[in-house]
Design a protein around this nucleic acid. Structure first.
Lengths: 201, 201
DNA sequence: GTCTATAGGTAGATAGAC
DNA sequence: GTCTATCTACCTATAGAC
């Protein structure tokens, strides 16, 4: 019945979908999948969320799997573009680390429901869909490694620290509870400082 | 500092269940739930894993939900007891942090399949089962906070750093791939050092 | 305790009226 | 494009033979 929107700091998360049922269903699916998990969510849950009959969904999406793919792709592209945008015009290695961790953390806090879907439902994607998503993830990981690289000599150390710092941001999606958790901006700043301490060794 | 020859690395995890079908089914369920998720796993998957007919399972467990509860409880109790054991006889605050993070990380790497179940399937537990699990989790979180407390003045800072450091260990369950990821002991040592850098601010 | 067979329920997706 | 009604498939759990 109620349409819940998941606010994005950039605000343009869902803009690649036309205003109307197609966007509303994607937002509803992100919310429901994020709360209950993909396999525990029924197409009826999603349809009810937008005040539609179970059959109405299939006019706009071919299947439940395509709905998962759509929101996963939008989420992954949003993380990548926001991270990239956060680094624009910043050249100091330390400041680039700060900007990346801050942006990544804020994204996972603000979009914690969608974040759960993109981080914890990869195994629910159909193989063909997974291929597309994996390519976007490789780009994001490459961007992060490029930001951290100036601070390390050997590749092994770079790899472990990259994984660890991304873990901090990703795990926010697991525990974040709006209202009970820190404000996203505050958390982003704090985690950015944490990351710089962590790397200064 | 903990002596590295000692860690039992999960050897006694399932000992509270009798040798036989009841233990085998629990281990199979941990493996299947960890790989595919609770709702995507059928009782047939679990039964086949131990070479049993779908009906055979119900002689040893009342339901799929009880199977989830059983392995979740065993996993949570194992984390708590291993963490507690790792701290035994260590009084230096710095060394206690090292021992706790090391043990916690190793547990999540060695038992990454079971770890996924206990960290990511909390919402799949029935309410009554969840109450029991939540109580164990509170004990574990209290233990961690007690270890980190000597290093902080204000409660807010303690809380944020506790969450961040536990995130490092928990997220290991998400990305760990045996063979392709670092050896659990090596990872545990590295993350313990990371945590001490992170707290030294 | 384990099996085969199946009941009972529900999910994803389609048919066809409007 | 949206609805109501329903099909088909599959899943959890039980019945009853051995």
């Amino acid at each position: 019945m109620k349409i819940s929107s998941e606010p994005s700091v950039g605000g343009e998360l869902w803009e690649m979908l036309p205003v109307g049922p197609r966007r509303a269903l994607a937002q509803a699916a992100a919310s429901e999948f994020g709360k209950r998990g993909y396999h525990a969510t029924t197409t009826r849950h999603i349809a009810e969320h937008v005040g539609m009959s179970p059959a109405g969904l299939y006019v706009h999406y071919a299947s439940k799997a395509e709905l998962l793919f759509t929101i996963s792709r939008i989420g992954h592209e949003s993380v990548l573009s926001e991270s990239s945008a956060a680094l624009e015009g910043i050249s100091s290695p330390d400041e680039r680390v700060h900007a990346l961790v801050r942006s990544f953390t804020i994204w996972h806090a603000v979009n914690h429901n969608l974040a759960r879907v993109i981080q914890y439902e990869l195994r629910s994607l159909e193989p063909k869909h997974y291929q597309v998503i994996a390519a976007i993830r490789r780009s994001t990981e490459a961007l992060a490694a490029e930001v951290f690289r100036p601070l390390f000599r050997d590749a092994e150390s770079l790899s472990m620290h990259t994984v660890a710092i991304l873990s901090l941001g990703i795990d926010v999606a697991r525990w974040y509870v709006p209202g009970r958790s820190p404000d996203p901006i505050v958390l982003g700043e704090a985690y950015a400082k944490l990351a710089r301490n962590l790397l200064r060794a």
